[in-house]
Design a protein around this nucleic acid. Structure first.
Length: 570
RNA sequence: GCGGCUGUAGCUCAGCGGAUAGAGCAUCGGUCUUCGGAACCGAGUGUCGGGGGUUCAAAUCCCUCCAGCCGCACCA
């Protein structure tokens, strides 16, 4: 189906084109009418005519018969009001469209989304939250749009930290019960403490790094044990959070290890490598350091080891050459901005990253505590994701108990998990990702206000109406009349869904979809309050049920595409 | 020093070239014998960090200043 926006735009465009080819009508949704076109003023300026005059001209030239009425307002705005017939027609189309007007893309792209990327040696903590949640939402949105998504979890599974863990494992013995996936963090900390305190341990760890990179079989065997445990643990956390990443998506630093020397030699062949202070560097133009000197991307360190620049370059090549990526997203915190700019610049210089491949660093701000500083526990430690989720589940469960749901304990706990995830994810997704945000569990889990649970509730209320019907409801053809303001506003909300989704995806800003969904939920509750559904009769009842059905489906798709569950009942 | 990000109502945040700057929370006042009140309606509060500029039109674009955060060669 053609979206309402696109229909209006093409009609307006034809009219604008008669006055100046390509003039932008600047069509927007409006609070003064259904839509408004703001392009007349600029056009009038260019034509040297009065805006009102041009606006009248457009009204005369624009064919919106049966679609909308046009009127000139203010200095030269065009206000559009959809006709009842067109509104009804669009709603009927939406009802029969499982995708609610969001068309699958015509050109399917292969999109590599690199996100989460925790250090496999440590437990997942708040520092990993945003990349995981935002990345997963973007991956889901791309999938829904019809693209081929390849998720990459670039876990830290190589180098000194792992050498440390291996040596610690050797000390403890492989059968040691202390090393379980439940206490990965403790194991890591013990190793870290020894590494910092004991010179002999440090020496062993260094030797182990060399052995690891040299491919020593026994070292690799031990490494495998540590990594497998770590990944298994990560997988549990992803499941608890409702993240689509699986073990198959884990392609850690180790994966690129045997490509690193080629990265260097190929850069050398291309004449891009400059030796500086014993390190092999590339100096992409436009980057300078504190003293104004050219800033290098260090591809190989002076000790002949490889840094993460080499790994990231290898990953770019792998994704372009082997995965055939058309688009690559790196969902990584903003402190890495310069690093990625340089990696991408070097990859372009080397010809590894063709112009046609969109490559973007999707940055995000920090999660802050109530004191506006980096979110830490009272003791100053980082906060584990598992702990965070547990606490949220506890609160959600307590809230459910307080509300006397008739659910049995098992169902209630399950629901509490869904609510907790929604609360955490929605809070993260609903503000512009560029901003830091303050982690406030009380606020995010509240059932009122702009929260995940509120949206879930809006959905659950609708589903409850259909449950109460007792029998499956179906009304093949409905003559929408939309006589109340609330019904009409709700209907207009549905029509705006495709643009909201597409704008959110195009800008890689999930919060735009959140803003849309919250607005829709508000229209919905206003409707719900003013327009009795089950107690109305005949055609009116069917119309209202159809609106409820559309609302439930819109919320369901919107939430699930963000990675948020929409339970049937709360 | 250079580069980047941020500064909007008491608090948390939308809005990022259009008509009187919005929402949630909190506060106050109403509605309602609830298709699930986890609701609805209404009220109030703003030098959109300051100052210049561009534009018919600026919270939005440009410049500059102030404040805060981040990055700036071998840990990723």
């Amino acid at each position: 189906m053609t979206s309402t926006y696109d229909t209006l735009l093409s009609r307006l465009q034809s009219a604008f084109d008669t006055l100046e080819a390509g003039a932008d009508p600047v069509l927007r949704t409006s609070d003064r009418s259904d839509y408004q076109a703001n392009g007349v003023m600029a056009l009038a300026k260019r034509l040297g005519r009065s805006p009102r005059d041009v606006a009248e001209d457009i009204v005369g030239r624009c064919d919106l018969e049966g679609v909308a009425t046009l009127e000139v307002a203010g200095p030269g705005f065009l206000n559009l009001t959809l006709t009842p017939e067109f509104l009804a027609h669009q709603l009927t189309q939406l009802r029969s469209d499982p995708r609610l007007g969001i068309e699958a893309v015509a050109m399917v792209k292969t999109v590599v989304v690199d996100y989460s990327a925790p250090n496999a040696a440590k437990e997942m903590h708040v520092g990993n939250l945003r990349s995981t949640v935002i990345g997963d939402a973007l991956a889901r949105m791309y999938r829904f749009a019809g693209h081929h998504v390849i998720a990459r979890n670039h876990v830290g599974d190589w180098g000194t930290p792992f050498a440390m863990l291996i040596e610690h494992l050797v000390d403890r013995g492989e059968g040691d019960t202390a090393f379980t996936i439940g206490d990965l963090d403790g194991f890591y900390k013990e190793a870290r403490t020894k590494f910092d305190a004991e010179e002999s341990f440090k020496e062993r760890a260094r030797a182990r790094v060399v052995a690891l990179q040299a491919g020593d079989p026994e070292t690799l065997r031990l490494w495998r044990i540590v990594v497998d445990q770590s990944i298994a643990y990560l997988d549990l956390v992803y499941q608890d959070l409702g993240i689509t990443l699986t073990i198959d998506d884990v392609v850690g630093e180790s994966f690129y290890d045997d490509m690193l020397s080629d990265v260097v030699t190929d850069l050398q062949v291309a004449g891009l490598i400059v030796e500086s202070g014993g390190a092999l560097c590339v100096f992409p133009p436009g980057f300078t350091n504190r003293d104004g000197d050219a800033l290098p991307l260090i591809v190989r360190k002076s000790d002949e080891g490889f840094g993460y620049a080499a790994t990231d370059l290898a990953a770019v090549r792998d994704r372009v050459d082997n995965l055939h990526a058309d688009e690559m997203l790196y969902v990584v915190g903003v402190p890495q901005a310069q690093h990625f700019e340089m990696v991408f610049a070097v990859a372009r210089m080397a010809g590894w990253l063709p112009e046609r491949v969109r490559c973007e660093h999707v940055t995000f701000g920090n999660v802050l505590g109530p004191d506006r500083k980096m979110f830490k526990s009272r003791s100053g430690d980082t906060i584990k994701l598992a702990t965070l989720l547990d606490e949220a589940v506890e609160r959600a469960d307590a809230a459910l108990i307080e509300r006397n749901t008739d659910l049995d304990e098992m169902a209630r706990t399950q629901l509490a998990v869904q609510i907790a995830r929604a609360a955490i994810k929605y809070a993260d997704l609903s503000t512009d990702r560029h901003h830091d945000y303050i982690f406030d569990l009380d606020r995010m889990i509240a059932f009122e206000g702009d929260t995940g649970p509120y949206l879930q509730y809006a959905h659950a209320r609708l589903r409850s109406i259909f449950r109460r019907l007792g029998a499956p409801w179906d009304a093949p053809s409905i003559a929408f009349s939309l006589d109340t303001a609330q019904e009409r506003q709700l209907a207009l909300g549905f029509l705006a869904f495709p643009e909201a989704f597409e704008a959110s995806l195009a800008s890689l800003q999930p919060h735009r979809l959140c803003v849309y969904l919250f607005d829709l939920a508000q229209r919905l509750t206003a409707f719900y309050d003013a327009c009795p559904v089950l107690t109305s009769e005949g055609a009116l009842r069917d119309q209202r049920l159809a609106l409820c059905d559309l609302a439930a489906r819109t919320l369901w798709i919107g939430l699930s595409v963000l990675g948020i569950d929409a339970p049937e009942q709360m």
